[in-house]
C-alpha cells in the first residue's frame, strides 16, 4: 500500500512540543466529562506512553524521525498496544463506566481507534530511510531491531540498508550479513487453527525470522501476543480458542504452533 509518509531512523529526532493530538485530548475529555473533571491529566497520558513517539505516528506530518530502528518498532508496538486496550474498552466495562448514550465518549473512542488504524496504514506503506551517521549500530543489534520492525509489519529494503551502512562505515556490508538481513520477512499478522486430533488443535503462525530470535508468546483475551524484546505484535484468535486450554508453544525456524485442548466442560453436550 502506498503512503506519502517518510520515516527516517537513526537521525537525532526533532523533539515535538509534547502536547497530545487533539483527538486524544478530546477523547479523554469526553470520557471524564460526565464525572465533572474536564481535562485529561498528564499522569494518564503519561501512562499511555504517548510522549515516546505515538504522538508522532498519529500526527499528519509527512516526515517523522526516530532515534533508531528499535525505537520505531517500539513506538509502533505501543500504538498497537493502545489500540488493543481501546478496542477492549469498547465493551461492557466501557458501557458501564461511561454510560452509553449519555455522552460522546464512545464516539470519540471510535474516532481514536479509527485514527490509530489510519496511522498504522500510513506507517506500513511509509518510505523508510536509515541514517547511521550519528549512531552506528552493530550488525547483530541491527538484525535484532529489523526483526522487531518486521514483527510489527514494517519492511526495510536491503538496498536502503546497504547504502546506509556504506555511508556511515565506508565499508560494504558483508555477504553473510546481507543474507541474514534479507532472510527477515515481514510478519503478516495471521495464523490458522488446525485440528490435529479429536479435541486437540494447534494455532499455527508462520513467520520467517522467528527462528533467529527469542520471542515470548502469550494470550490476552482473544489476542495472541508475540513479544520480542518488548516489541509486541497482536494476532486475533478464532472465537473457538476462547473455549480451549493452551499448552506449550512449539517454536521452529519459520513458524510456531500453540497446542490447544478443547475444554469439554465449555462445550454443549450433544
Amino acid at each position: 500500500m502506498s503512503s506519502s509518509l517518510r520515516i527516517t531512523c537513526g537521525a537525532e529526532p526533532t523533539r515535538g512540543s509534547g502536547t497530545s493530538p487533539e483527538i486524544v485530548a478530546n477523547f479523554f475529555e469526553s470520557l471524564i466529562y460526565p464525572f465533572g473533571f474536564f481535562h485529561p491529566t498528564a499522569g494518564l497520558l503519561g501512562e499511555l506512553n504517548l510522549s515516546r513517539g505515538v504522538n508522532s505516528l498519529l500526527s499528519p506530518s509527512q516526515h517523522l524521525e526516530f532515534e533508531s530502528v528499535q525505537q520505531l518498532a517500539q513506538t509502533i508496538s505501543d500504538l498497537d498496544s493502545i489500540s488493543v486496550a481501546l478496542r477492549h474498552m469498547d465493551s461492557e466495562e466501557f458501557a458501564i463506566w461511561c454510560g452509553l448514550g449519555k455522552s460522546n465518549a464512545r464516539t470519540h473512542l471510535l474516532q481514536l481507534i479509527e485514527e490509530m488504524q489510519q496511522a498504522r496504514i500510513r506507517v506500513k506503506g511509509a518510505q523508510l530511510q536509515l541514517d547511521f551517521m550519528h549512531n552506528q549500530p552493530s550488525a547483530r543489534s541491527l538484525l535484532r531491531s529489523l526483526t522487531q520492525l518486521a514483527l510489527v509489519g514494517v519492511v526495510c529494503e536491503s538496498r536502503q540498508l546497504q547504502k546506509a551502512w556504506l555511508t556511515s562505515t565506508h565499508q560494504p556490508l558483508s555477504k553473510k550479513w546481507i543474507s541474514k538481513f534479507e532472510s527477515i520477512k515481514v510478519f503478516s499478522g495471521g495464523g490458522v487453527l488446525l485440528e490435529e486430533e479429536s479435541l486437540r488443535f494447534v494455532f499455527r503462525v508462520k513467520w520467517k525470522g522467528v527462528g533467529d530470535c527469542e520471542p515470548a508468546i502469550g494470550l490476552f483475551r482473544n489476542q495472541l501476543v508475540i513479544d520480542v524484546g518488548g516489541v509486541r505484535s497482536f494476532v486475533e484468535l478464532p472465537a473457538a480458542c476462547s473455549r480451549m486450554e493452551p499448552g506449550n508453544v512449539r517454536l521452529s525456524k519459520n513458524k510456531f504452533e500453540i497446542d490447544l485442548a478443547v475444554k469439554e466442560s465449555e462445550w454443549p453436550r450433544s
Partner: peptide
C-alpha cells in the same frame, strides 16, 4: 479499566 490500561503492554518493554 485501570487494569486494562496498565497491563496490555502500554508500558514499553
Amino acid at each position: 479499566i485501570l487494569s486494562m490500561l496498565g497491563r496490555v503492554g502500554i508500558k514499553s518493554g
